[in-house]
Design a protein around this nucleic acid. Structure first.
Lengths: 137, 137
DNA sequence: TATCTACTTTATAAGTATTCTAAAGTAGTA
DNA sequence: TACTACTTTAGAATACTTATAAAGTAGATA
């Protein structure tokens, strides 16, 4: 939970110019104790609701991708027509409800550590993601 | 590894009319001991190469979706612009190389059983999928 | 075998998410 | 204030997927 001057600092430190648009997106994404999941269109909607500024879709895409590159966001591997992002960048996993397309965190205490007894020559593991699909009982 | 008459039987049993197109797609997908991963465009390419028939994209999409519904294929949750399918319908997981967009199976003996100590009220688990992203060493 | 009907295929249009383009705008610096 | 490199923007372009509706075909029936 940071204030504008702190986002400005954070952006500058990452080598990103603190533009009006980037600061607004920071506020929408990070001005809360709770982390959350979103798609680009969710975010566009949130900005439209919350903000008095209008940010073009292209800028939203650009910003989200640079935030992801800087490690402020994580992309979640959900097989769907839309890409999901997570403001929780710690190592954790997800429940996915295909019905209402909702994601829920599974944090590390709620799942056993995953050990993989196989490797591919010349490759190293970059990430391990578990997606638990759920449906109505 | 089945022959045409067997695919005809298989399709008929599933309530799918054994059309020329569906039989050809069966041949391309299932005429091998090895299972494999593919995207729709991979499959379209394979059909073009292997076959003397021309099958429209719409039919390929329709057929793959009905095969998936019947349980002859599984969709793989890979975060990407394309949907991946697997002719291996047994329970297993995947390595994914984002560089060359290649998938590799991790079979059950190569990974510990995953136990999730959390549940969402009113929901039950449908599937558990592990995606291990790899990169060059 | 001829006919009928429901299911399929097809080309193409439409839809949706995302990226590209290049012109206008802006932050940081001198 | 002026300059330059970085950003934003609208809209075009692209890519994947689904919808449409007309023509074709499988299986059943007579």
């Amino acid at each position: 939970m940071l204030s504008s001057p702190e986002y400005i600092e954070k952006l500058r430190k990452s080598g990103l110019r603190p533009t009006r648009q980037r600061i607004k997106i920071c506020e929408v994404l990070f001005d809360t104790d709770k982390t959350f999941h979103f798609t680009i269109s969710d975010l566009a909607q949130m900005i439209e609701n919350k903000a008095n500024v209008k940010i073009s879709l292209a800028t939203i895409y650009n910003t989200i991708h640079s935030f992801e590159k800087k490690g402020y966001l994580k992309e979640i591997a959900v097989n769907s027509s839309q890409t999901y992002f997570d403001t929780n960048t710690t190592h954790h996993h997800h429940f996915y409800d295909e019905g209402n397309k909702e994601l829920f965190d599974i944090n590390n205490s709620e799942i056993d550590r995953i050990k993989i007894n196989k490797d591919i020559p010349g490759k190293k593991i970059k990430s391990v993601e578990v997606l638990v699909k759920v449906e109505n009982k």
